[in-house]
């Protein structure tokens, strides 16, 4: 007799546990407010990334087309993947001294692992992360970027 009651207890408990699960899923079915989908290309305009989001490395320039990069090459040394290549040039300052400055700051997005060591170790805070995340391109060559804008100069007061 106990076997039979055990049997029906099994059936009952089993069905009960199934109904419990179905209550959760059916509950969500009738609760559209729980939907978490974001419609991505449509919400592009009001899509704000977090301020610290590591999108890609950029070199901020001010309105006079001036940046802070002195061309010291510390970022290049610290980069684990050879993503950054600093090509320096020497310029002659106003007081007639020879000085090392940046010619090209090459950044290869395709190799970057976003470890943030370059941004972190830059002595003059010349590098930063942008929040751009749409990196897809048709030509791999365009992933190699020059961070300093053409004709840009070192900001005054940055050594």
């Amino acid at each position: 007799m106990s076997n039979i009651s055990e049997y029906f207890k099994d059936v009952f408990n089993g069905v009960l546990s199934l109904l419990k699960g179905m209550r959760v899923t059916a509950g969500y079915f009738f609760k559209p407010s729980a939907i978490v989908t974001q419609k991505y290309p449509e919400n592009r305009k009001n899509l704000v990334m977090f301020e610290r989001f590591k999108g890609e490395v950029v070199m901020p320039h001010n309105e006079n087309n001036e940046h802070k990069c002195t061309g010291c090459g510390i970022c290049e040394i610290n980069c684990p993947n050879g993503t950054i290549e600093v090509i320096p040039k020497s310029i002659i300052t106003e007081d007639g001294k020879k000085k090392r400055a940046i010619d090209k700051h090459i950044y290869r997005l395709g190799m970057c692992t976003f470890c943030a060591l370059c941004v972190k170790t830059c002595p003059s805070n010349a590098l930063a992360f942008s929040q751009k995340f749409e990196h897809a391109v048709f030509d791999r060559a365009s992933l190699t970027k020059q961070l300093n804008k053409p004709g840009s100069q070192l900001m005054k007061g940055v050594e």
Partner: peptide, 29 residues
């Protein structure tokens, strides 16, 4: 769905979602 919210918390503080690279020798980034 629930994990995504933790990733958002990560992203806000560390800048990365999964691959956080948040620690550095001697502290955090």
């Amino acid at each position: 769905r629930d994990r995504e919210m933790i990733l958002d918390i990560f992203e806000e503080t560390t800048g990365g979602r999964m691959l956080v690279s948040y620690n550095c020798p001697g502290g955090v980034m």
